[in-house]
Structure formats: structure tokens, C-alpha cells
Amino acid sequence: MLSIKNLCVSIEGKEILNGINLEINPGEVHAIMGPNGSGKSTLANVLAGKEDYEITAGEITYMGEDLFEMAPEDRARKGIFLSFQYPVEIPGVPMVNFLKTALNEHRKFRGEKPLTAGEFLKVMREKKALVEMDTELTNRSVNEGFSGGEKKKNEIFQMALLEPKLSILDETDSGLDIDALKTVAHGVNALRSAENATIVVTHYQRLLDYIVPDHVHVLYKGRIVKSAGKELAFELEEKGYEWIKKENGD
């Protein structure tokens, strides 16, 4: 589904990713772990198409297509979804308008008719239940005045609505209490299928208790320095990132 080869990315001349290789197949859950500043969020943002980055080398193919050729909105319509680490507040853009526009853009891309207001509200109700999203929140502007937890729930709610093929969860666990974490994880798990893949970016093992990965990768200084099964997450939790740093000569 996704194939990353020798990806090198810099921002303002500073190299952040330094030769990433990663293969992701349908049905798989990959966890990307690593200390702060290792390049995890950069990788997530580059996949979604954020333009602040300079791709200096490498290639990414998604469903057989060159990802770099696609605008962020095209990536989204073709099934890539980024759950933001820091979802932005957009005062004045009502949640309902935003969600309806987004969903109908997806439908249009698939050659389906746009949903009417009534149909949309029905779908929205169903998906809201999945993440126990407060109805009052969808009456507001996008993320406006949402608590940290509500913002993260809102991301998963959007994910449920847009039904992506490849979901990238960037630090979705940060700022969540244990109950919210369980709710969010439950939402993510409910959306898993044999056709879909998920990338979970986190630096704690905690989330992986609830969203169990097939593969764990450790990112350090812009490279994947270790890849293994889910047991790697436990090892990291036990030994800390110092272990990785030492192994890499720091």
C-alpha cells in the first residue's frame, strides 16, 4: 500500500529525515516510536502533504502512485488520513459545514452523489456515537474551544466519517486521560479492517496496549534504527530511549 524508499527531508536547510525505508501492507498496524525530535511528526506531515518541508531524496509510492505528485486534498480523497498532533482551531468555520464539505468531496471523488443535509446528519450521528463525541461540539466552529481530549476525539471522529485506507495517528495519545485514551483506541480498532492500514506515531508504549501493532519501528535522528514486533515497544518502555541512544553511539 505504502512504500517509502530512502526518504530524506529537510526543513530550512536542516536535515530531519535521513533515509527512511518503510513498507506498509493492507491490514497492518505499524507503530513508529522514538524520542522527541527524532522526526516522527515530520514523517507524518510529509505523508499528508504539508508543504513546509523539502524532500531532498527518496520516493514514496501509495497504491502504486507517486505520492509527491498529489496535492494534500488528493491524498485525502485517495484514502490518506492524518490525525493531527495539534488540531488547529478555525473560528468561523462551522464543524457541520466542514465535515459535510469534506465528506462530499470524498464522495464526489468516488463518483457518488453528495449526501443531503438529512442523510449527512444521520451518518454524523452514527459516527459520533463511536467516539462518544458530545453533540454540542459539532455545533461549534472547527475545534474551537475544544479541550485537548475533545480535539483528539474529533480527529478520530473525522477518521470514522471519511473511512480512510491509510490512517496516520500522530501522537493521538498525548493529552488524553485514560478514559479518553480507551475511547479513542476503541474508535480506531473499530475502524480496522483487512483492507486498511494504520501508522501509530507515539513515544509512549501506553497507547499500544490498546492499539496493538504488528510492527514497531524506532526512529532516531531521522533514521529507522530498529524494527521488530510489538515486543519492541515493551523493551523500549523498560529500558527507555537512552538504550537506543547508546546503541547509536551517543
Partner: peptide, 13 residues
């Protein structure tokens, strides 16, 4: 950032 957020949900620039 807000623009990117909207685009990342499939909304044309």
C-alpha cells in the same frame, strides 16, 4: 496551518 488542515480532509485549496 488551518488551510492545510482543511485540505488534508479532502477539501480543494
Amino acid at each position: 496551518d488551518a488551510l492545510f488542515y482543511l485540505r488534508s480532509r479532502g477539501i480543494e485549496e
